[in-house]
Simulated assay, not measured.
Amino acid sequence: MAPETATLIRDALALDADQRAVVANALLGSLEDASGTGEVDMAWRAEAARRLGEVRDGAVDLIDADEHYDRLRASFTA
């Protein structure tokens, strides 16, 4: 480990819990961006928008959640 890294870790651990959480969140966020999860988020947003469009256009039949779960339970007991 580089001396600068050790110093950074020591200084970060000296922060109070709230400040450490902010730093940790920022560091984790930088790893997520580097690993391409931004692309994954964009893909999920596009999928959600597509599905919402289908609902608004009437292209899909919506089922009440309680009805869906009743059908699902019935299929397990059959």
Rank of each mutant, 00 (worst) to 15 (best):
E54D: 13
I63R: 14
F76N: 01
M1T: 07
A24C: 12
L27S: 09
L28N: 12
V40P: 01
I9A: 02
G38Q: 14
D66N: 07
R45N: 10
T7S: 11
A78N: 10
E67N: 06
V60W: 01
A48C: 07
L27K: 13
D18V: 15
A74W: 11
A74P: 04
G29C: 00
R45C: 01
A34P: 00
A43Y: 09
R56K: 15
D33H: 13
L31F: 14
E32C: 02
H68S: 01
V22C: 06
Q19D: 12
D57E: 14
R20Q: 10
L27F: 11
D33W: 13
W44T: 10
A6M: 12
S30V: 10
A43E: 08
R10K: 12
A43N: 08
D66C: 05
Q19I: 03
S30P: 02
S35A: 13
L28M: 09
S35P: 02
G53Y: 03
A78M: 03
E67V: 15
V22M: 06
R56H: 13
D64I: 05
R50H: 06
A34C: 06
W44E: 12
A48M: 10
D16F: 08
T77Y: 10
L31E: 13
V55N: 04
V55I: 15
L52V: 10
R71L: 13
R50S: 00
D64V: 11
T5F: 03
A49R: 12
D41G: 01
A74F: 07
R73S: 15
A21E: 05
E54P: 01
